[in-house]
């Protein structure tokens, strides 16, 4: 029933064909591509920066204090120089070096925490949905209770007890608060999938429980898992930055949140040192927009009804 036009295509028809191809291959989703590019941009900043820039400049007093980015002047009338292209902070640390190290660190905490959280979620969600009975009750109640506890409150207490924490430890602590929603989501999907025709067919085919769980069910959960993963990366980063801005994050490793904390502490807002707090905020915004776009894109990939032709 399909028509193949014999005449050369007009511009409008070419555009339609392009949209149709995009419809055909869902991974060519513009939102997904834009979102992924923004996130990769942050990673690239970290990698390329490490190769090209002198990271020694991240130490206190390595440069002049409160130098503005190139093309601007600070309140003392000093102009930006090539030595510190995006300025320095109130302790003489080079902003560019701070961002090169800090931005990937923040992303790392987010990814690490939600990776651990997802793994816990997959295991618990599958167990609850598949085993049922008491096990299901326990896991469900546990995750429901955990979901009502505000993570920041607990983390503030825990971190103030720990004092200085490493990035990994912080990821682990945050992971303790991002496994609940994947658990619930996967449990719900497994419960509805258990009755699906193909799972019944697999049981009829004498398949083992692990075969049904990992070969029949899991592949069909991938879109949900992806979506849930991205959502929990966002939550993890928000939590991590929240802690850092309160001054509770890692003390020796630069992160975006800690830079903002120091800027606020040193009165950067009153002194009009906008680059000090503005640049990390901008990078965080880029990260969140990237994550949001990836999430929206994945939604369209897994749900063809949202795709526009």
């Amino acid at each position: 029933m399909a028509d193949t036009p014999a005449t050369p295509l007009t511009r409008a028809e070419k555009a339609t064909a392009k949209r149709a191809r995009r419809f055909d291959n869902p991974w060519l989703n513009p939102k997904l591509i834009w979102g992924a590019s923004l996130l990769l941009g942050i990673v690239a900043l970290g990698i390329i920066g490490r190769l090209l820039w002198n990271l020694e400049l991240v130490f206190t007093g390595s440069s002049l204090l409160k130098i503005p980015p190139i093309g601007f002047e600070n309140l003392r009338g000093q102009a930006g120089t090539l030595a510190n292209p995006v300025g320095t902070d109130g302790a003489g640390r080079d902003m560019l070096a701070l961002l090169i190290i800090g931005a990937p660190n923040t992303l790392f905490v987010g990814l690490m925490a939600s990776m651990i959280g997802m793994t816990i979620g997959i295991v618990l969600g599958f167990t609850a949905g598949f085993v049922g009975g008491r096990t299901d009750d326990t896991i469900r109640v546990l995750s429901d209770v955990m979901i009502t506890i505000p993570p920041l409150l607990i983390l503030v207490v825990v971190q103030s007890v720990f004092g200085d924490v490493s990035l990994t430890l912080m990821s682990l602590l945050i992971a303790g608060f991002v496994w609940q929603s994947p658990t619930r989501l996967i449990r719900a999907q497994v419960l509805s999938m258990r009755e699906a025709g193909y799972v019944q067919m697999a049981r009829l085919s004498g398949a083992s429980t692990s075969h049904i769980m990992f070969k029949e069910m899991l592949p069909n959960l991938i879109p949900y898992l992806f979506g849930s993963f991205i959502a929990s990366v966002t939550t993890s980063i928000v939590t991590a930055v929240g802690l850092e801005v309160l001054g509770l994050g890692p003390q020796r490793v630069p992160t975006l949140g800690r830079t903002i904390y120091e800027a606020i502490n040193a009165g950067a807002l009153i002194q009009n040192l906008w680059w000090w707090w503005g640049l990390p905020t901008l990078l965080l915004a880029v990260m969140f927009i990237g994550l949001l776009l990836v999430n929206l894109g994945l939604d369209e990939v897994s749900n063809p009804r949202l795709r526009k032709l």
């Binding site: 699906a196 697999a202 004498g206 592949p219 069909n220």
Partner: peptide, 19 residues
């Protein structure tokens, strides 16, 4: 299992869409 097999109502649900 080998000796008792079934045909179900919904032919759309009986195949795993992944394979």
């Amino acid at each position: 299992r080998k000796n008792v097999q079934a045909v179900f109502q919904d032919p759309y649900a009986c195949f795993n869409p992944f394979y």
